[in-house]
Design a protein around this nucleic acid. Structure first.
Length: 915
RNA sequence: GCCCGGAUGGCGAAACUGGCAGACGCAGCGGACUUAAAAUCCGCAGACCCGCAAGGGUUGUGGGGGUUCAAGUCCCCCUCCGGGCACCA
């Protein structure tokens, strides 16, 4: 067993495991304490979670099979419950505790429901913090990471989490990351992994490239104050855009996912339907004299003219509103558009203008308000021909045009687009109305339309649009796209906001990309039989940019697998999101050294039945995981289209109104809570303080309250354990003769207790199946215990048979098992149960026992509560009515008044409406 | 600006399809036990008003309207807080 020096008192007492499993040690200690305090001998056993939990931890450590999933050949129905794997920072925080408490409760419940449960855990172990720690503490990343993993694993075990550690996955170990490399090679073979030179987001502090998803408001996601720069680098990309449509379509299948997450992904994929239209750049030589003025400012359209030739260069624009193309009064290019480079090269003034635009963009990014940036632009001096009208439109460069969306160029239609309108107003460009509100009767007056600008509704009619006049917008969109296609200057098309996934990172602590650069053969993939490409241990980590691996000659220098010539290895490593994109498949077969996993085992376990984690992963991790699954499916490795059947995103843990963070100084350490109140109380509080999907306000007094409650449970159970144990020694209490007698002639006390008991079973069972309001489940158990302690005098008076008591204690223990496992195991033993609690069947509720015999019906007069009457639960409408009217208070209040109507809601209320 | 959440006692919250608002817990107050304290147990408790009391009345779920016998819950408008996206053509 591992030592646990950091756990304080609890750690010191665990020698108990050597003693009898039953209670004497506790009792002796307690008796001694009481004797020392000079108290009487009344043996009230005190709840000491430190002792109980240490005892069970030691026992569980000796039973690695306790939480083991059965093999895929099991006849049981499978249930795969998964919590998002943590980054091994070295310390669990309360968010983890909450996440794992939810998952653990569910796993334990499903075990008790008879499922074959897979409940694994692992470590997202590559990543930058290890390199930072190496710089700071001079500790090798590997050592630092593995040390952190050991520490966090101890914390998890201390919490009593039911993980099947046989399938632990640690992403920074070669037996895992070799499969990252293997997948990368498969993707390369299929053209899904490719290399291209591209502008990349560069964080100077991380000294590496960031994915688009890691850029938040123009800044690095890890360094909120750090402006992300743009650099040109050769990078590896994964072609996630090949799956854009499927990723979008399949969102509708994910009915077990929060609508919020699906919406976020839908927006992220950002599909829009529209058309691509080519505008030919005009050959400037044909300019007539009378056009000179317009040419200088670029604020007017030049009419179509015979004989004006194009230069052959084309500007492709993307638009979702091709129906407004006759209203286009300029063409706008992104400052980084390739054509701009050419135009600027020949025109120093334009070159300066473009530089100024880029500078503004950079500044806006620094200021953090990219969206609110003021629009600027410049006329390029060139014209392009509208292929529909033949008109010649001025070509502008605008800072509001994004290079990496659509084609990096637009047609500007000021009358029918807000942004174009704003730009045109500022620069005096023509605003031409081509769409009018759809209306019965005559055309709206010109001035009326002016007041509506920019008019963007598509429920409208076209005007000034040549042969398309009087068509509706939507109708004309398909007609115009077809027209463009027919004449060869455009087509209907779809664009996505989603970009290919740049996976190259100029970092040390990640998966080496398995590629070799050969002077003869170019890019050569590492052959499968040479995997893994091992990450070398001895690499100096510095703050200078570039890939640290490039400074490790023994790594870089290799031979070409094809020709044997001296060659160089790729020195970039993979984005860590690669690691987390498929780790949950590895859990099913973590020791496989022939393949990433066994496909039939995965076929049994997948999809994941329930995934639980923070909403912060709604886009990145969860979209990459879906992509990876689809690629693996196309590789024939898995049968499922989606990895996760049901997703649950839990709320944040906050304290004093803010998310726990070191900078706010409001962090509560799980270790401290566990030490003071025990793991059961800490976990149970995290479920009790709020429903799991809402934010949770951490209050230490609340943890103390839960701890007190567990103490009440403990004392009640210990007081009656012997009687219960005696009864449990017979057949199962519910079929026992004594029990049947008790039910046939129930004393009022037993009846009350059993009713509450079965109401509680019903409540918790229903919640696990649906709402997951564990806060009210725990409240229900508290109510049950309150009922039990209130019944103590009756129990003492012998009004509750042993069999009933045994059934109550047994069931109470089962109900507690998902939420407070240590206490439940301890009580289970005390009441003489031998069976493994984790596999004991979840109690069934008995509707007859749960039913109330008499209920209180509120009596309202004109909607105001005036009295309450007691009636039989099955009382019919007439009986309720009679009871209400017979009530003294009611009779007095309605005396002499005329009754207009009486509303009786069976089992709920009665409302008497008087005139 | 757009899209999601949310607003209920001193605090965390409950009220699942409209039907006794505030379950359960925290903090608080009173009492029992104790030399005392801790621990434990019992009781009180939205606010306001009347009453010595038992009890009774009014009011109350961010604000304003509406539907209904009945609204925390449904509809319309508004305010504030949290989160996400943000020039996506």
């Amino acid at each position: 067993m591992e030592s646990r020096p950091h756990l304080g008192p609890a750690g010191g007492v665990n020698l108990q495991s050597k003693l009898s499993p039953y209670m004497p040690t506790n009792q002796k200690a307690e008796a001694a304490a009481q004797a020392a305090a000079g108290e009487s001998s009344s043996l009230e056993v005190r709840y000491t979670p430190a002792e109980i939990e240490a005892k069970w931890q030691a026992r569980w450590a000796e039973q690695p099979e306790l939480y083991a999933a059965e093999p895929a050949s099991s006849p049981k129905q499978k249930y795969y419950v998964l919590e998002m794997l943590p980054y091994p920072s070295g310390q669990l925080h309360m968010g983890h505790v909450r996440n794992y408490s939810i998952g653990d409760a569910l796993a334990r419940y499903m075990w008790m429901q008879g499922y074959n449960v897979l409940h694994p855990m692992g470590w997202d172990a590559f990543g930058l913090p290890a390199e930072n720690a190496a710089l700071k503490n001079d500790t090798p990343p590997r050592e630092w990471t593995l040390g952190n993993i050991a520490a966090m694993k101890r914390q998890m075990n201390r919490l009593g989490l039911s993980y099947d550690w046989r399938n632990e996955v640690t992403t920074c170990l070669p037996d895992y990351y070799r499969w990252n490399q293997w997948f990368f090679l498969r993707m390369y073979e299929r053209g899904l992994a490719y290399r291209k030179k591209s502008k990349v987001n560069w964080c100077p502090q991380c000294a590496t490239v960031l994915a688009n998803e890691q850029v938040v408001a123009g800044c690095c996601w890890r360094h909120e104050e750090q402006i992300v720069e743009q650099r040109d680098l050769e990078q590896w990309f994964l072609r996630i855009t090949n799956y854009a449509q499927e990723l979008l379509d399949d969102l509708s299948k994910l009915e077990g996912w929060p609508e919020k997450v699906r919406t976020m992904q839908r927006n992220w994929i950002g599909r829009s339907e529209g058309a691509r239209v080519e505008f030919e750049v005009e050959d400037g030589s044909a300019a007539a004299e009378d056009e000179e003025k317009a040419r200088k400012t670029g604020t007017a359209i030049l009419p179509a003219r015979e004989g004006v030739g194009g230069t052959g260069q084309k500007i492709a624009v993307f638009t979702t509103r091709i129906d407004t193309i006759y209203g286009a009064t300029s063409v706008q290019l992104a400052p980084e558009h390739p054509l701009m480079k050419e135009m600027a090269a020949a025109d120093p003034a334009l070159s300066n203008a473009v530089a100024a635009l880029l500078e503004q963009q950079r500044k806006a990014r620094e200021a953090g308000d990219v969206g609110a940036i003021e629009k600027h632009g410049a006329f390029t001096g060139h014209y392009a021909i509208n292929p529909f009208s033949g008109e010649r439109l001025p070509v502008w460069v605008g800072n509001y045009i994004l290079l990496d969306y659509g084609t990096g160029a637009i047609m500007s239609v000021p009358a029918h687009d807000e942004r174009d309108y704003e730009f045109a107003k500022k620069y005096g460009l023509e605003i031409r109305v081509v769409v009018l509100p759809r209306r019965t009767g005559e055309t709206p007056a010109e001035g009326e339309v002016q007041a509506l600008l920019p008019f963007t509704s598509e429920d409208s009619l076209l005007i000034n649009s040549g042969e398309f006049n009087t068509l509706g917008c939507v109708e004309s969109q398909s007609k115009m796209a077809a027209h463009a296609e027919e004449h060869g200057f455009g087509n209907a098309t779809v664009t996505y906001r989603l970009k290919d996934w740049g996976v190259s990172r100029q970092r040390y602590w990640g998966t080496p990309i398995p590629m070799i650069y050969c002077p003869n053969d170019g890019i050569v993939p590492v052959p499968d039989d040479q995997l893994p490409v091992l990450l070398p241990d001895q690499v100096e980590i510095t703050q200078q940019g570039g890939s640290p691996l490039a400074r490790a000659p023994e790594f870089v220098n290799t031979t070409c697998p094809k020709c044997g010539a001296k060659a160089l290895r790729e020195t970039d490593t993979m984005d860590t999101f690669v690691d987390s994109s498929w780790y949950f498949y590895r859990y099913t077969d973590a020791k496989n050294d022939q393949a990433p996993f066994d496909t039939s085992t995965v076929a049994y376990w997948f999809p994941i039945d329930q995934y639980i984690g923070g909403v912060e992963h709604a886009i990145l991790h969860l979209i990459y995981s879906r992509f990876w699954t689809k690629v693996m499916r196309d590789l024939g490795l898995v049968k499922n289209d989606e990895p996760v059947e049901r997703l649950f995103t839990q709320g944040m843990v906050i304290r004093n109104g803010a998310k726990m963070s070191k900078s706010k100084g409001n962090v509560v350490s799980p270790d401290e809570m566990v030490e003071r109140f025990g793991a059961d109380a800490t976990r149970m509080y995290s479920l009790f303080a709020a429903p799991p999907d809402r934010d949770l306000d951490w209050q230490e007094d609340g943890v103390a309250g839960v701890s007190r409650f567990l103490g009440r449970v403990w004392r009640f159970a210990m007081k009656h354990a012997e009687r219960a144990k005696a009864a449990a020694g017979k057949e199962h209490p519910t079929t026992d003769k004594e029990m049947m007698d008790a039910l046939r002639h129930p004393t009022p006390a037993s009846q009350l207790i059993l009713r509450k008991l079965h109401q509680t079973i019903r409540k918790i069972t229903e919640d696990f199946a649906g709402r997951w309001h564990f806060n009210t489940c725990i409240a229900a158990i508290m109510e049950l215990v309150n009922t039990l302690t209130a019944a103590e005098p009756a129990i003492a008076a012998g009004e509750v048979p042993d069999a009933v008591l045994a059934e109550v204690l047994r069931t109470l223990t089962l109900l507690l098992a998902p939420f407070a496992p240590y206490l439940a195991f301890e009580l289970w033993e005390h009441i003489g149960e031998k069976e493994n609690l984790l596999r004991a069947p979840w109690p069934q509720f008995d509707e007859t026992l749960a039913r109330e015999e008499q209920i209180e019906i509120p009596v309202q007069i004109k909607g105001k509560l005036r009295s309450v009457v007691r009636v039989d639960a099955e009382a019919d409408e007439q009986a309720v009515r009679d009871a209400a009217l017979a009530d003294e208070k009611i009779a007095a209040l309605i005396a002499g008044k005329e009754i207009a109507r009486i509303i009786v809601v069976p089992r709920k209320l009665i409302n008497i409406v008087v005139k």
